[in-house]
């Protein structure tokens, strides 16, 4: 029985290999392509200057309060 179960498990695992959740969809063979890439929304939605010195967001304000109470306790 035990070996049977083990076999079943390994077979399931094997079948699992026959999956790729992210298989790219086929593009229709007669699809018209506009090769222009500028102005596409998806390529412009990236932020590389997010690492600012702003500490006025809620998280930072809470952090500040936390650090300050710690200092106060120490004194």
């Amino acid at each position: 029985m035990a070996t049977n179960e083990a076999k079943q498990v390994s077979e399931e695992a094997k079948m699992d290999l026959f999956e790729d959740d992210d298989e790219f969809e086929e593009f229709e063979i007669d699809l018209e392509w506009d090769s222009k890439e500028e102005g596409k929304e998806v390529t412009q939605q990236w932020e590389d200057d997010w690492d600012d010195d702003d500490v006025n967001d809620d998280f930072s304000l809470q952090l500040r309060r936390e650090l300050e109470t710690n200092v106060a306790e120490k004194k």
């Binding site: 992210d22 790219f24 969809e25 090769s35 932020e47």
Partner: peptide, 28 residues
């Protein structure tokens, strides 16, 4: 940049991998 805009599922799949890559080089 070159994916056909009508194929949103493909764009999504590209992003699924591109996003972690961008994050790892500090781009959000």
């Amino acid at each position: 940049a070159h994916c056909h805009p009508d194929h949103e599922a493909n764009i999504r799949m590209i992003l699924k991998y591109l996003i972690p890559v961008k994050l790892s080089i500090g781009i959000l």
